[in-house]
């Protein structure tokens, strides 16, 4: 496993070059610069058009009103933002987004941590289980949502059938405002499990076996080894999964668009869905951009907090 980030670049190598005459050295250096430019140009050009320019354009759009074709018709300053910050729907969508994150991220990480721990053994056939656990990674949000739509069907779906076997009354998984967000969260946890499992498993595989052996000699049981050794040693992986999953949860859109369209009663109206509605259904690109920027700041602040607070607890070898 490649352990560390190698930051020191090629300096050492290039200075070892045989020195020819100073003149050819100089042309060489220029050639190198030109080549570097040629090599970087495609990426830089694309980033400028599709990342940096739109970032600035978003800020500009957020301070204007637009027509349905996206042309700016009126400068409104910060009104889009103040409108949002006084709108109940906007706060509702923030609450929904945060609840969605709380429902999906910790659950997913705990489950995949357990799965990775179970699959991190030398049992015969464990490869097969590893493959099964990582399968959801290959499922796209489009297909995953349709599968769950069928499972969640109120009268003919299998989930309600299983409940009826247990003599539990059927649940309107997607049309009951109390259940809709939970149902979306459940299918999201399932969909994310594969990726989280893979990252955590490869984290565990990076820990040297000697540590476990010595723990065993000391007489530590499997549970104690798990909590006192495995978890602290793979904190870098756990940290990575947490940050990535949280950012992913903020961006959840496909399952909501297919399964509930933000309803019932806005109970699944997460911020990204609200942005999509504003910008691409109601053609209000201005407020859409303003919301997107606010979302960006929320994500940024939460990510920074995670880095500040959690990373101190992360144990890098």
């Amino acid at each position: 496993m490649e352990k560390d980030l190698i930051i020191q670049p090629a300096l050492k190598r290039t200075t070892l070059l045989p020195a020819f005459s100073t003149r050819s050295m100089r042309t060489n250096r220029w050639l190198e610069r030109i080549l570097a430019f040629v090599f970087l140009a495609p990426s830089l050009l694309l980033f400028s058009i599709f990342l940096f320019y739109p970032l600035i354009k978003s800020v500009y759009l957020s301070m204007n009103l637009t027509d349905p074709r996206g042309r700016v018709v009126q400068y409104v300053g910060l009104r889009n933002f103040t409108d949002l910050l006084t709108s109940e729907l906007f706060y509702k969508s923030i609450t929904v987004t945060l609840s969605f994150i709380l429902l999906t991220v910790p659950t997913g990480i705990i489950l995949s941590l357990i799965l990775a721990w179970l699959a991190h053994t030398r049992l015969r056939g464990v490869q097969l289980f590893r493959f099964v656990f990582s399968l959801p990674m290959a499922i796209s949000v489009g297909t995953g949502s349709i599968i769950w739509m069928v499972l969640y069907h109120p009268t003919l779906g299998t989930l309600n059938y299983f409940l009826s076997l247990l003599h539990i009354a059927p649940i309107n998984w997607l049309s009951d405002p109390n259940w809709a967000l939970l149902s979306i969260a459940l299918m999201t946890v399932w969909m994310n499990l594969g990726f989280q499992f893979i990252v955590l498993l490869s984290g565990m595989q990076g820990v040297s076996e000697d540590i476990y052996d010595s723990a065993q000699i000391d007489g530590a049981g499997p549970l104690r080894t798990f909590f006192n050794l495995t978890i602290p040693l793979i904190t870098p992986s756990i940290f990575f999964v947490t940050v990535v999953s949280m950012i992913g949860a903020f961006q959840a859109f496909g399952q909501i668009n297919i399964l509930t369209k933000g309803g019932p009663m806005n109970s699944t109206n997460v911020m990204v869905f609200n942005i999509y509605q504003d910008a691409f259904v109601n053609y209000r690109f201005g407020t859409g951009s303003a919301q997107a920027l606010l979302l960006f700041f929320i994500v940024l602040i939460l990510t920074l907090i995670q880095f500040k607070v959690l990373e101190k607890k992360v144990h890098y070898q």
Binding site: I49, F50, S58, G70, Q251, I275, F285, S289, L300
Partner: peptide, 17 residues
């Protein structure tokens, strides 16, 4: 730094482009 820019922020201008 470009890895930090979330897609939602830039999708509206990109769509317009």
């Amino acid at each position: 730094a470009t890895m930090m820019i979330p897609w939602e922020v830039i999708m509206i201008p990109n769509y317009l482009t």
